[in-house]
Design a protein around this nucleic acid. Structure first.
Lengths: 200, 200
DNA sequence: CTTTCGATGTCATTGAGTGACATGACTATA
DNA sequence: TATAGTCATGTCACTCAATGACATCGAAAG
């Protein structure tokens, strides 16, 4: 019997998904996952920083997809062009099949611990996007604002995409949301509306 | 000696802040905090859901400030007016003193665990704001988009407020950021720019 | 004074996460 | 083929966050 098991991470992920569905995330211990994967708990933590990470494999690939889309954008793109490219890359990453995303969301949504992790992944995505925009000559605070706005649009649109039936594609929803955000925020008077500058 | 200690939560918070500064968050155990507070670890968890929560006392009050500001807005406010009110309420909540916020941020920023919790507090704030807007007749997806956008603006502006010297007030920075976001997003063509609707 | 109730203490336990060290397996090089 | 090096894994022991069960103390009400 060989001691070395090929594709340990894949084994862990598959075992974890099975157990998270059979029971739930909370009622599954790392020992359970390791047992089903035919490995030990100690090895689990050599492949994943913590129990949550086993569910967040895709975030690195999503980030890569977003980044290469931004870098492929025209050279002197302004902020809006950069985030449109980023959103485009993210939309392409997910394709048409909502089922896996829905399944994953049902697991993540069921546990505060996992919702927290999801948020930090999105925040990382936002920070990475802002950084990429700065690297293309878009300065602060535009880079951060545009990045935060883009991720916010994506989050809202993505949730809608999962909630509604197969009517509109993700791209259509994202596009509509981006336009909607523009309409909303642009309704603000050029001078700052009624926000009082509270110098005490 | 009386067994009952008045203001247990306050004692825990004070003890925790001291220790987080002396050592760090990570190198402080709940047992340490309890000892300095003159209480037991078990009691700590009766007052705080987990170790992180001891640092997030203000978030409930911030949410209250934001909510009452939104509810105080004119009756048929459109999205932009509602979020301006919300931002106004949040700005007022922090006042002029940046020192406490800076200290707290230095602690939170030093630990991924705490950054995650911070994000979920902001996400909760966003969801609450969206809910309040819906209660005032603003429909989806405008409510969610505006709420996400507003929180994004606040987050970026708040970070700037802490980073720069005492030049501009928080209100001024928030106001400027909101306008900037409007300028950026409004630059998007009315029809959706180049985001291809990727119906595979 | 006694009863009741809420806050705390005590004890035991589970499960996440980590460090140290041993061991098996694959690879390179002679 | 032999030997050394390296990498993934197993084993053991440990810390610490978090929780349940139960005892106890203090205060307030009757």
């Amino acid at each position: 019997m060989s001691r070395w098991k090929p594709n340990a991470e894949g084994r862990f992920r598959a075992a974890a998904m099975e157990l998270f569905i059979e029971r739930s995330y909370e009622q599954t211990t790392v020992a359970d996952i390791a047992e089903r994967a035919g490995l030990t708990p100690r090895t689990f933590f050599r492949h994943f920083a913590d129990k949550r990470e086993v569910l967040f494999n895709g975030s690195a690939r999503l980030q890569e997809a977003m980044l290469s889309a931004v870098r492929a954008a025209p050279a002197h793109a302004v902020a809006i062009e950069a985030i449109v490219a980023a959103l485009d890359g993210m939309v392409a990453f997910f394709g048409d099949d909502r089922a896996p995303a829905r399944l994953r969301r049902s697991i993540v949504a069921s546990t505060p611990e996992l919702r927290e992790r999801e948020l930090i992944k999105l925040a990382t995505l936002s920070a990475t996007l802002a950084e990429a925009m700065r690297a293309r000559g878009i300065n602060e605070p535009d880079a951060s604002l545009a990045a935060e706005g883009a991720i916010a649009v994506f989050r809202v649109a993505f949730a809608q995409w999962l909630d509604e039936s197969e009517l509109r594609s993700l791209g259509e929803i994202v596009s509509a949301s981006l336009n909607r955000l523009g309409t909303i925020v642009a309704a603000n008077g050029p001078k700052c509306s009624s926000l009082r500058s509270s110098r005490s």
